[in-house]
Structures are given as C-alpha cells and as structure tokens.
Lab assay of single mutants.
Amino acid sequence: HSHMSHTQVIELERKFSHQKYLSAPERAHLAKNLKLTETQVKIWFQNRRYKTKRKQLSSEL
C-alpha cells in the first residue's frame, strides 16, 4: 500500500469535485501528472465515491 502525498490528494480531490467518474484516458493522464499508477487513481476514486455515498445515506437518516 503506497502513501499519497498531501499534494496528490489535493489534486485528486479537485478533480473529483468536477467529475466523479474518469474515463480511462483521463485516468491515465491524471496518474501521469501526479506520478501515481492508474490503479491508484482508480481505487482512490472508487473509495471516494463510496465515502460520498455513505455520507449522503447517513445524512438522510
């Protein structure tokens, strides 16, 4: 499990705020920019979407 830097997370968050789903080319581009693997980016987005979904569910209770 590799640790992401604060800067990388900020960039991922910024991208996520604009779009929740990335196409393969977008993911490849973002990964390259942030010096991450595409898998890391993919998993981060999956986890981030899951967290957002959970938060929405709990706020509706």
Rank of each mutant, 00 (worst) to 15 (best):
L61V: 14
Q8G: 02
R48C: 08
R14T: 05
H29K: 14
Q56Y: 08
S5G: 04
L36Q: 00
N47E: 09
W44A: 01
L30T: 01
E13M: 09
R54V: 11
T37K: 02
H3K: 12
H18G: 07
I43C: 11
S58D: 15
L30A: 01
N33T: 14
R27F: 08
Y21W: 12
I43T: 06
N47D: 07
A24V: 07
L36N: 00
K42I: 07
E60I: 06
N47G: 05
H3V: 08
L36P: 00
H1K: 12
L22R: 00
S5M: 04
K20F: 04
Q8F: 03
S23G: 04
T7N: 10
T37E: 04
L36E: 00
N33F: 12
E38I: 07
F16D: 01
T52M: 11
T39F: 11
Q56R: 11
S58A: 11
E38P: 10
H18Y: 11
R48T: 04
H1W: 08
A31M: 02
Q8W: 05
L34I: 04
S59R: 06
N47W: 15
R48P: 01
L36T: 02
R14Y: 04
S5T: 14
S59H: 07
S17K: 12
M4K: 02
K20I: 06
L30I: 06
S17W: 07
H6I: 13
H18Q: 09
F45V: 00
A28Y: 05
R48K: 13
K53E: 08
H18T: 13
K53N: 09
L30F: 05
E13P: 01
T7A: 15
T37Y: 03
Q8I: 07
L34M: 03
Y50E: 14
E38A: 08
S17N: 10
K42E: 15
R48A: 11
L22I: 05
L12N: 00
L36H: 02
H1M: 09
W44Y: 04
Y21C: 07
Y21V: 03
K35Y: 08
Q8M: 04
L61G: 14
R54N: 13
Y50T: 11
M4I: 10
K20V: 06
V41D: 01
T52D: 15
E26L: 04
L34P: 08
R48S: 04
H1T: 11
K20T: 05
W44G: 00
R27E: 05
K20E: 08
M4R: 02
H18N: 08
S17T: 09
L61S: 14
H6D: 10
H6S: 09
Q19T: 11
S5N: 07
R14D: 04
Q40G: 02
P25F: 12
R49D: 02
S58G: 12
S5I: 03
S59N: 15
K51L: 11
S59C: 15
E26A: 06
A31H: 01
K15E: 05
Q19K: 12
R54D: 12
A28P: 00
S23P: 04
A31G: 02
L34S: 01
S2W: 13
I10Y: 11
Q46I: 07
N33V: 15
Q56C: 15
E38C: 06
A31L: 02
I43F: 07
T52N: 12
Y50W: 11
T37V: 02
Q8T: 06
L22M: 04
S17Q: 13
H29M: 13
V41P: 00
S58H: 08
T37D: 04
T37A: 03
T52I: 08
K32C: 07
S23Q: 03
N33Q: 14
N47I: 12
K15P: 00
H1A: 08
K20M: 06
H3A: 09
Q19P: 03
E13L: 08
V9Q: 08
T7G: 08
K32N: 09
H3G: 10
F45R: 00
T37Q: 03
S59F: 06
R54S: 12
Y21N: 03
Q8E: 02
P25C: 15
H3Y: 09
Q56N: 13
Y21A: 03
T39K: 13
F16R: 02
V9W: 13
Q46R: 14
H18P: 02
K15F: 14
K42P: 00
F45A: 00
E60R: 03
K42H: 09
A31R: 00
K32I: 09
A28S: 07
S2Q: 14
